[in-house]
Amino acid sequence: MAMNIMSTTGCLLEMCDERFELEDYQGGVPRWCTGCGDNAILAAAQRLCRDEGLRPEKTVFVSGIGCSSRFPHYMKTYGFHGIHGRALPVAEGVKMARPELTVFVNTGDGDCCSIGAAHWIHAVRYNMNLTVFLHDNKIYGLTKKQASPTTPIGTKSNTTPRGSYLEALNPLTVTLGVQNVSFVAQAVDWIPEVLFDIVKAAYRHKGLSFIRIVQRCPEWLPDMFEPWMRDPDKVQLLHHDDGLQFSASLSRLYKNQLRHDPSDLNRAREIASSLEPIPVGILYRNPDVPCYEDLLRSDKLRTPELTRAVLDAEFDKYTIRPQGSEKMQA
């Protein structure tokens, strides 16, 4: 007798569940430049919400500052357009207080890898159940072309008129080097089919899912991605029985494919280091890393009495008593 069958009550309730369409998740009209890669990420996120039946009022998109961080405005869900570099701590706070919500984070290469770098490292280590989109267009776009940590060496920008001096930071290898890392993937905005598959796998992973999305900026770096766009062999698709599997039509176009086991961390680090070709797929996944919110979860009900008692105990630590009152008491 199968014991995992759904109860009749459960079936009846599910029958009444609301079904959503893509339009139910579409917020304001995007103000991104025409041709911007952010549009592809938005389409993938909206499709995910629809396909997974995420209830808009139980879904939150949290962002920092930058082009990418306008994302929550375009989703008809809850959103928090935060402050520069602090998308992750805000999202962690939301998840901690309301663990039943589905929380996504949209952050850019400047937001995450520069001013928010410390938060990024610790968010990976905390491994809270969040899906993080790193929109990496390798430039500060909203402020009109300044070099970001991921800008390739030699790129001329308003802050580096003679070309940038430093090697670009690789967000994948950094993330894969942090303790407790549990999901790292790389996508490119111009292969929407794979982008969607990765977003779906990331959402279904329990823990912090970090997706770096290489995203075109036609406005400020129109030629930067041309070589990859023109030559499909410059993209290497990662496939595995436990990872992604690609359709035949996609495989006809993208012939450069590599079988990679997402549970192999060392190999993931090796592949992540490759700048040419760009690896696309799931680099690493470990479902056994515990989530911080689960480790701290208490069975105690948060009743008003409990909240008051804890607060009182805290306030008592700082109570200022009139001088000499202790003596008097003694």
Binding site: T34, G37, A40, D189, P192
Partner: peptide
Amino acid sequence: TPRCSTCDECTQVNKKMFAYDKNKQ
């Protein structure tokens, strides 16, 4: 269509000629 990255370029040119499908492509 499956390779479209939803960048709005074509729909900006002519909204009646070009449209998005249910997956926004």
